[in-house]
């Protein structure tokens, strides 16, 4: 018996869904498979939309950005288990990621806005 099996057995009383993916009864990682499938679909969709120029460029860019953001949430939810709130860092790591996303958007969007002065001269 490895130490982890011992560990699990010792605390087999838990059924609190601490790891929503790890504890289902059929022992098939359905959540991971679902997450992976969604990420593949989103990627193929974005690629297909761009290669076939299905809509006007500005709208298309908005659409693929939306797909990318969705995809990021898929990773965060299905693989990084961001919504698990029985972990000791809850909810501070979510705050920090939220602030990080805020500043990411700020830095990128504001830089484009600020630096667009006289850009056409290049």
């Amino acid at each position: 018996m490895t130490s982890i099996e011992h560990h699990l057995e010792e605390h087999s009383g838990r059924s609190n869904g601490l790891d929503s993916t790890g504890m289902d009864e059929k022992h098939t990682p359905w959540n991971h498979i679902i997450g992976f499938s969604i990420s593949l679909v989103l990627t193929v969709l974005a690629l297909w939309m761009v290669l076939h120029h299905i809509i006007h460029a500005a709208v298309l860019f908005g659409a693929i950005m939306a797909l990318a953001i969705l995809q990021a949430f898929v990773q965060l939810y299905f693989f990084m288990h961001i919504t698990e709130h029985h972990v000791p860092q809850w909810p501070f790591h979510v705050w920090m990621l939220t602030l990080g996303v805020t500043f990411t958007i700020l830095f990128v969007v504001a830089s484009i806005w600020i630096m667009s002065f006289g850009a056409e001269s290049y």
């Binding site: 500043f103 700020l106 806005w113 600020i114 630096m115 002065f117 006289g118």
Partner: peptide, 18 residues
């Protein structure tokens, strides 16, 4: 404090909006 940085280079001339 993360929303004020352009005041160090107003004279770049980014335009009235910025």
């Amino acid at each position: 404090s993360f929303f004020t940085w352009v005041h160090h280079f107003f004279t770049m001339g980014a335009g009235p909006g910025v």
